[in-house]
Design a protein around this nucleic acid. Sequence first.
DNA 1: GTGTAGGGCGCG
DNA 2: AAAGCGCGCCCTACAC
Length: 622
Amino acid sequence: MRLPQPKRVTVKEWVTAPVPGVVGLDFETFYTSAYSVSQMGNWAYVHDRRFNAWAVSVSDGERTCVCPPAEFPWGMIAGREWVSHNREFDEAVFLRLGDLGVIPRDARPVRWFCSAALCAFLQLPRDLAGAAKAVFGVDLDKTIRAGMKGRDLSADLPGMIQEETDYAACDAEMALALWNTLSGHWPAHERRLYEQTVAMGRRGLVVDWDYVDANLKELNATVEAVSAALPWKPALSITKFEAACADIGTPPPKSTAANDPDFQDWVRDNMRSDAVIWARHMQRMRSANRTAKVLESMKARRKADGRMVFELKYYGATPGRWSGGGGLNMQNYNRKPAEGVDLRRCIVAPPGCLLAVVDYAQIESRVLLFLAGDTDTLDMFRLNPDADAYEIHARATMGWRPEVSVQGSGFSGEETLRQYCERTGSGLRQLAKARVLGLGFGCGARRFIEVAKVMAGLEISFEESDRIVREFRESNPKIVALWEHLNDACASCDGGDYVLPLPCTQVNSDLGRFLIYRDVAAGENGIECTVAGDRIKVYGGLLAENWTQGTARDVLASAWLRCDASGFRPVLSVHDELVFEVPEASAEEDLRRIVGIFEEPVAWAPGLPLLAEGKLCAVYGK
DNA sequence: GTGTAGGGCGCG
DNA sequence: AAAGCGCGCCCTACAC
């Protein structure tokens, strides 16, 4: 790929000629390890006292100008299309500089694109240097980048040394080059999703700050007290814990994680040892500390209007899901209280509103059956729209039939599997759950012992596990065939790229969504390929999992866009769930409509049975 | 001092 | 034949 070599010009030279096409733009700002975007998020970073944007570089592909933001002739590029790598950051800087009066507020772009989001969509490395290497084969000079940290170079400009101007210029030029080369492959509806993601986080969530403040104080006291009860420092040091175990003659556990089966066995074997008390203290401290850190992180993102900004990363995961980012992950808030603190309870509805929380039921299980073409099982879903996925699995593949008839239950007045298990004390439903969640993507017998234990609380032997795994594969031939088909299709791309279109991609269209496995090397030891810049091993079950997760993501994305088109803008998105703020007066009706939108059949997935569940609440998670 | 890797813990 | 997968953040240890 040929890379343009723009000429470096001064402000005086820049203003002598008009600007063609899209403009690449990149701000350079002061940062340290403690004061950084990755830790604080864009909003808190640009509102900090230390905020200092000491340069902006602007490139039109023919010329590049680097100068202090206040000196740049913004009128020359106002009303044009701009592109930045991580636009949310540059936009946050731009808006803040406008508020501070450093640059004119009215010199805005007509559109502002993000080349990083574009690269993520194409499953290229998201970082600029990685993308530059992958697309153009060039190495951006990292030594210059490293040398800038902690330096305020505003005094040096415009007499800044050549290397540093080169670096600043390089980012703007590269963002533009990536955009001009790749933007044609980014569909319009995906761009809308990106824009809505950014807008959602910037709008933020309403928080019960009294609850946050009160609990933060208590949690910090707990952390302090538990830390003092441990006879070493740092209190969470596993090395020191193991040394202390040796001192009292107790063998250390393989893991000190609360939910690790090895740890639980160790507790059982060492009940009377002080080491068990220490380990429990460490677990309690980790839990309290995590919760405290989340609360602190929330406080740092409090806007003047009382809402809390957050960031979700569009296409943060390779199958296309959103991920957390910017120092606070809104997608992994505890579902249950920890140390008496309910993190979800911090998020509340604004006055006069309720939160409408809507999510898809067992979306991935349903999508897997759809992708495998298991129409018989899908028919069971369609004929019993409210049925439990684990019951359908038990009926379809485990030979389960109800013993008695109960009026009003799922399958035409029969007893449900849940009712059956409650009545008889059977663990069949737990086993069905473990099979559905654990075995659909290639998990083997050894691993399934753990999966069954953690997911369903089942203690099984290797022989039992092996029997279950083989039985599952025999009774789900279409799923196994899917693994094999994907494995073969990928292996056949040896020496090239394996491009797997998601169902939302129209036949023969190159403007869709794809899972891309680059530089496939298939051999005796399996398949290796590059995903988002990393070399990984892949196999049929993994490909089936990625395809399933990606398709389920597209189902939610589709619902998101349809909700938006109907005037329902979510305030939060968590994989298979959207959260809305709805006026109390219309809450019931709005919820009903949103659930209806979720359950609308998707045009590109005919026969995929969708079930959505919705609830109204004053605080999140209740 | 900085960067990274691994354990741990939280979510879907 | 065998293999659950997808994330982010905090803390500690360790190499440079």
